[in-house]
Design a binder for these strands. Structure first.
Lengths: 339, 339
DNA sequence: TTGTAGGCGTTATCAC
DNA sequence: GTGATAACGCCTACAA
């Protein structure tokens, strides 16, 4: 494997018999270059198979050519789908995609510190994570344009869905079917994240119930975390109550799958004796016939990139809040309550 | 949002009353630095909240501090899980993770060309993709240390599983249960990829059948591609044959889910009248009680990083081939054949 | 042990 | 239009 040292702008300049400056102008297609000269340079570039050094360019321009994405738990299908949206949008740009996956608190700190230097990425997208005050301050100090996707903070531009409306939608559907004992199962927001999506969805459910003269009874609420296994256990707890809820709204499809499993293990027919609604509409939801609240996951990633590129192109302005629609998708896990 | 210009090595030097060279030595913990001086420098660094510029360092050292990962179809759970393994391993290193997701052929070309400049990443991991000759040549020319994970090519170091053995394992299990009409459903390797995992698994199945004096009948083989939807259709075709297979080995868990769906739609009880085996043991396989061949997905990513770091640290040598074990996991979708 | 200074490959600001 | 020539921030001989 012979590795020839990569040609530099110098070699091109020499071969084309011009200065480095001129080559650079051609590279960045500056207007003021004689067509003949330009062609000579282009020929030299082709001949040498020259590609500019991204690093050197970065040092000179102060930009890196990379966009960072902070994602929690690549185990969650919804997060992966959002990430795909980001990647798809970025594929049409010259930016590389640097992924910071955060699965532990320590890692979270590390990442924020890494970013301290406005030097790793030109822009940042934070997926499904709301920074706490300390992190906010750090990120802010770097001056790196930052967008939140599925995260809330008034000082950042962000793309969100109306989670309260989603929760309301789910509950309304159940109420219309005649349910009265409705439960909620979501992940437990760390107390410092005041506005986790799951919590907002719960608020939506509670609101819909209240409008119907009912209440979301505390014993019908479980906030055990998203892994299916955990959700299954929490679901089993709900089903063991007397009387048990006749319907459960879940904070995510994954959690809904856990509940379905709990129902199956307890031989409780769905939707005969229990209705279940998920959230997200990940691929498997369709396959399993799960009624759910659909949100545009992939699209949210794309929009995040659009917002970020806009922010990076200088148009500062105050933070934008872009809201994507949610939609009820009725499938086979919801029906009228028993008797 | 006030953005103070980030402090440079110069500022640190000034504050600590030493030269830039000394600061640099402290940064790269060179042995020859007076403890007292070192401490002064460290204090200055802390005080200024200084973080070295990765770009400047890169220009100087010729390294980027990033590892690239080329992944196809982030929609496949197995690929995501491998990626997680890579990310986890990288989290303990100073390297950033740059993800190149490839979901279209054009994008594939773009990525390879981007890499032409040995300038974006210091090392490369290619996940679940076997480069064709042209790509191979390009990658090779860059001189970027490259590792294949779940990909085959004798000129690259790689971490693989014994897919033939996996296929054999699956078929043997079915044979022991008494099955004789065994089918296979996998994704169709583009013809230029001679050794796709799916194909190897099929070869394993065929081998086991042959050892038992049977053959893998062509009409019992479908290679329709991995999406669940496609697999469902292909599965339905198999089930419509007369006589239909009594068992189907699938090239992935996702495909197995498609087959299960086809069976459900056709009201064919599993494992009563049909046994199904998947491949990978992704999370949902456990939840759904799918019998499958487990391969260490997460671990394969970690091992890939280990191999890559070794390769990058110079120890050239010839390509290494590291093989991870596969294992039969019997759950609820396999049983004796009908009658 | 520490300081000095050249170089990494570009871009950008000057003159010409 | 084009050519010098500073930056950009760091690393690393080479001196001292």
């Amino acid at each position: 494997m012979v590795v020839k040292a990569a040609p530099t702008i110098r070699d091109v300049a020499r071969l084309a018999a011009v200065s480095r400056g001129t080559v650079s102008r051609v590279l960045n297609d500056s207007p003021r270059v004689d067509p003949g000269t330009r062609q000579r340079v282009l020929d030299a570039i082709a001949e040498l198979d020259y590609v500019p050094s991204a690093i050197a360019r970065g040092l000179s321009t102060g930009r890196t050519g990379a966009i960072g994405v902070i994602v929690p738990f690549l185990t969650r299908p919804s997060v992966v789908e959002r990430l795909r949206g980001v990647g798809a949008a970025l594929a049409h740009t010259p930016y590389d995609l640097v992924v910071f996956n955060i699965e532990t608190p320590e890692r979270r700190e590390t990442v924020v510190r890494l970013l301290a230097r406005r030097d790793r990425v030109d822009g940042l997208i934070i997926l499904s994570l709301s920074p706490h005050p300390g992190e906010l301050a750090q990120i802010d100090r770097t001056g790196i344009p930052t967008i939140l996707v599925d995260g809330h903070h008034r000082s950042f531009s962000r793309v969100v869905v109306d989670d309260v409306a989603g929760g309301r939608l789910a509950a309304s559907h159940l109420l219309e079917l005649g349910h009265r004992r409705i439960g909620f199962l979501g992940d437990d927001p760390l107390t410092r994240f005041k506005f986790s999506p799951s919590r907002l969805r719960r608020i939506g459910v509670a609101g819909a119930l209240r409008s119907a003269g009912l209440e979301l009874r505390p014993e019908y609420v479980r906030t055990g975390g998203f892994p299916r296994e955990t959700a299954r256990r929490a679901g089993a707890e709900l089903l063991a109550l007397t009387p048990p809820p006749t319907a459960i709204v879940c904070g995510s499809d994954v959690e809904a799958l856990g509940v379905l499993e709990a129902a199956r293990l307890a031989s409780i027919p769905v939707p005969g004796r229990l209705s279940v609604i998920g959230y997200d509409d990940i691929e498997i939801a369709g396959d399993l016939g799960l009624t759910t609240i659909r949100q545009p996951l992939f699209e949210s990633g794309r929009r995040g990139v659009a917002l970020l590129l806009a922010a990076m192109s200088g148009a500062e302005g105050r933070p934008v809040r872009e809201q994507l629609p949610v939609e009820l998708v009725v499938r086979a896990t919801t029906g009228p309550p028993p008797d």
